[in-house]
Amino acid sequence: MKCELCCENLTAYLDQELGTRESEGMREHLDGCTVCRDEMRELREAMLLVDSNTVRIELRPPLWRNVKAQINDAPVARQGWLGALGARWLSLAATGAAALALGFGLWGYQQRQEAVRQQEARNAIELQLYMNNYIHSRQVEEAAHRVVAVPAVARHATPAATRVVHRDYRDNPFSSLALHSSSPFGSALTEEPKSEATR
């Protein structure tokens, strides 16, 4: 080992920070080199002098009391039996559970919204049907009214046609319109239809 390298490693050698092989190399060189040996001795003495004459501040008791007071105000998050790893997994699990709950909540909301839409559709259909029935009823009524109101048609009404009209009007809640006295079908409607054999 050369003196330059030896001098560079003197401090680390004194602090026992060198590896085994490096330390052996240093020892061998120092055994045979007076200059480096004197250098090492001077360095060691300087450190001893500094360490012996350094002012050291002593710890005052109030310091711990202040620390303890602040610690008690905000205690550390305890690891407990779970440990750091367990705490991490627990937080992940909690996040997952929260996400799952949110997902279920959204799904439930969507289901309810769908149910509402379906109910509204059913209501619309029922309303349409009702309207259709109403319109049909009105159409029948108006048709009957036209039949009744057209004497020319009434004059040519055959008994069969009369019986059809009779049946329809008897079942029709608006049949009172056909029972007008001026209606050519009026008497036919109030009488029971005669059977075919009696004609």
């Binding site: 560079e8 003197l10 401090t11 001077e42 360095l43 003495e45 300087a46 450190m47 002098l49």
Partner: peptide
Amino acid sequence: HRARLQVRKRVKDYL
């Protein structure tokens, strides 16, 4: 190492 050399230089007279 450099810090120790500086300190040694300053306290040399007292060694």
